[in-house]
């Protein structure tokens, strides 16, 4: 006989309250996680969408790509040796549209590579978010440090850097705007171990992301919130099941006196914990996916079903540990004590 289910059926209100709390905490965690991923994409989609590989910057740049200048001879020898390698530069800037409205953007330029947009002189490829601001293909954009104009050649999806839309421009135009001849970075795609190149320091994609000051600070704060929420839910599980178990000490004692195994009592508690958690998480996952669809356009929000499933598994594990720890008192229950305490 499934006594765990019988108890849920009889004491619906108690279990609905517990389930609601799990639902609310897990939903909040999913939303914060969506915002964290969204902000992360907004901050560094340009880098995050690249395949695994190694970034190289000048060893004297103090791990700050803005200060990096790679010698042209080093650059050409690396690009010659590594077929897929690409030299890139990124600088924050702005462009004025045809109504003279200014837009903050991140100028990105690179040597020939399938990983970056190839653009001719005087052309620009923009992140699609600028299309929503009224810029169209064929429009002419200006920059006060550039002598000519940029003709919009097209748009690309989800290419952001430092919360600004990316603008791919030609190397020659970049050199004119920023008065530099050297590139800042070299990226070598591939999972092989990094090569030692004299005068250059190597970074994995993840290490490179962490050199972007706003990225690491922002992600650290958001990840901290997520893990705090996960830890709090674990504690909530433990506290709630502890309270429920304390209320049921007498009942556990009587069941033990009748000959019910302690393992069956644990099974009863686990069944109830899994039942409530799975239902609460299923609702939470469904609602968070609905939120993904209806989230406002400009809101940096990205929550994949994989992330929600990963977090759900963590919630189940945390819930199981919390409930089990609180259930250790079941083992200590003395049947005699329960009998002497009177009615359950």
């Amino acid at each position: 006989m499934n006594i765990a289910w019988k108890e849920i059926k009889k004491n619906r209100a108690k279990f609905v309250i517990l389930g609601s709390i799990i639902f609310l905490v897990s939903f909040l965690t999913f939303i914060i996680s969506g915002l964290s991923n969204g902000l992360s994409q907004d901050n560094a989609a340009l880098i995050k969408d690249l395949p695994d590989g190694q970034f190289y910057m000048n060893a004297e740049a103090n791990e700050t790509y803005n200060l990096s200048r790679i010698d042209e001879s080093v650059q050409s020898s690396v690009l010659k040796e590594q077929k897929d390698a690409v030299a890139i530069s990124i600088q924050m800037g702005f462009v004025n549209d045809m109504d003279d409205k200014q837009h903050s953007i991140a100028f990105v330029t690179s040597t020939d590579s399938i990983l970056f947009e190839s653009v001719g002189k005087g052309e620009v490829v923009l992140d699609r978010s600028l299309q929503d601001k009224g810029i169209k293909v064929g429009d002419s954009l200006t920059n006060n440090q550039f002598s000519g104009g940029f003709t919009v050649k097209g748009f690309v999806d989800q290419k952001k850097y430092s919360h600004a839309p990316v603008a791919y421009i030609n190397i020659e135009n970049y050199k004119e705007i920023y008065r530099v001849n050297e590139m800042q970075l070299i990226f070598v795609p591939g999972k092989e171990k990094s090569q030692v190149i004299t005068g250059l320091q190597s970074f994995t994609n993840k290490e490179f992301l962490n050199t972007i000051p706003s990225y690491s600070a922002e992600q650290m704060s958001l990840n901290m919130i997520i893990w705090f929420l996960v830890a709090i839910s674990g504690m909530l599980f433990a506290i709630f099941f502890y309270m429920m178990n304390v209320q049921k000490i007498g009942l556990y004692g009587i069941l033990k006196a009748l000959g019910v195994k302690t393992s069956r009592l644990f099974g009863m508690m686990w069944y109830q914990m899994i039942f409530i958690t799975v239902i609460a998480l299923a609702l939470s996952v469904a609602l968070s996916q609905v939120f993904t669809m209806i989230a406002p356009e400009g809101m940096p929000f990205s929550l994949t079903i994989e992330t929600t499933f990963q977090l759900s598994i963590i919630f189940l594990i945390i819930g199981f540990i919390g409930a089990t720890l609180s259930g250790l008192q079941i083992k200590k229950v003395e049947p005699l004590q329960a009998i002497q305490q009177g009615e359950v």
């Binding site: 009889k10 009942l251 359950v344």
Partner: peptide, 10 residues
């Protein structure tokens, strides 16, 4: 027992 000690939800 002195009290019936029945399981309340059964």
């Amino acid at each position: 027992f002195q009290s019936s000690h029945l399981v309340p939800f059964l």
